[in-house]
């Protein structure tokens, strides 16, 4: 199952990173968001670390919706979905493969968003930066697990990006709050409530939705029209 998942992930990454324009669109949208929000500061004013972290995560969330829509749209073009389903592996391999590809793409996008947030929103990097990065990685796992599950809703292209976002965003609230809080700490070195409980929360989210993905994915991804 793992090798099939890796085959799917590497195929998707090849399609999106070297040929397609899938990631470019998501990147531009995220960057635009960060830029537009930077306009909310007056000249000479600096945005608070929490605001900056919120904008970073907002950009990531929108980017993630586009990523998963593209990842699943790839399989609809020539009925390639049926090809995947015919492979002698559990269908969860598709979920895992899409998740791995989505995780990689999201990290690539965030590697652009993070410096953009620091530059446009006037942030500094505090000694807590490594905790911030760890939280980004940990939060991305949960976001991607849920994204790869719900992204499959667009199978048959009935559900659009807008629908995926209204279903997905509220569900992401716990990780987004954690990401924003710890992100603010990474910018400003100030987190009175401590990072442990936030990290614990994100880990619980990851575990819950990795489990939900494994159990529920076969229901949403199938050969029925």
């Amino acid at each position: 199952m793992l090798s099939a998942a890796l085959a799917i992930a590497s195929k998707d990454l090849r399609l999106l990173l070297s040929r397609g324009t899938g990631l470019v669109q998501a990147l531009l949208l995220g960057l635009l968001l960060i830029f537009v929000f930077s306009l909310s500061q007056r000249v000479g004013e600096v945005m608070g670390p929490q605001g900056a972290a919120a904008i970073f995560w907002l950009a990531s969330a929108f980017c993630q919706v586009l990523i998963f829509n593209t990842l699943f749209a790839i399989e609809e073009a020539n009925g390639a979905r049926f090809g995947l389903l015919l492979a002698p592996v559990p269908v969860q391999a598709v979920w895992l493969g899409k998740g791995i590809a989505g995780f990689t793409l999201l990290l690539c996008a965030q590697a652009v968003f993070l410096p953009a947030a620091i530059v446009f929103l006037g942030q500094t990097v505090s000694p807590l930066w490594h905790v911030g990065l760890a939280t980004v990685l940990l939060a991305d796992v949960g976001i991607v697990a849920l994204g790869a599950l719900l992204g499959a809703l667009s199978q048959g292209q009935a559900a659009r990006e807008s629908l995926l976002s209204i279903v997905l965003f509220p569900l992401l609230v716990p990780v987004l709050l954690a990401g924003i809080r710890v992100g603010a700490a990474a910018f400003a070195d100030d987190i009175p409530e401590g990072v442990e409980s936030w990290l614990g929360l994100v880990a619980a989210f990851d575990a819950l939705f990795l489990g939900a993905g494994i159990v529920l994915f076969p229901f949403v991804y199938g050969g029925e029209e």
């Binding site: 719900l150 569900l171 709050l177 954690a178 939900a212 529920l216």
Partner: peptide, 20 residues
């Protein structure tokens, strides 16, 4: 599927809101 996933989220939302 969405109905199941949504309810799984409830305790986490509550915990995160309390921490927040």
């Amino acid at each position: 599927v969405v109905g199941i996933v949504a309810f799984l989220d409830v305790p986490l939302v509550f915990l995160s809101a309390r921490l927040w």
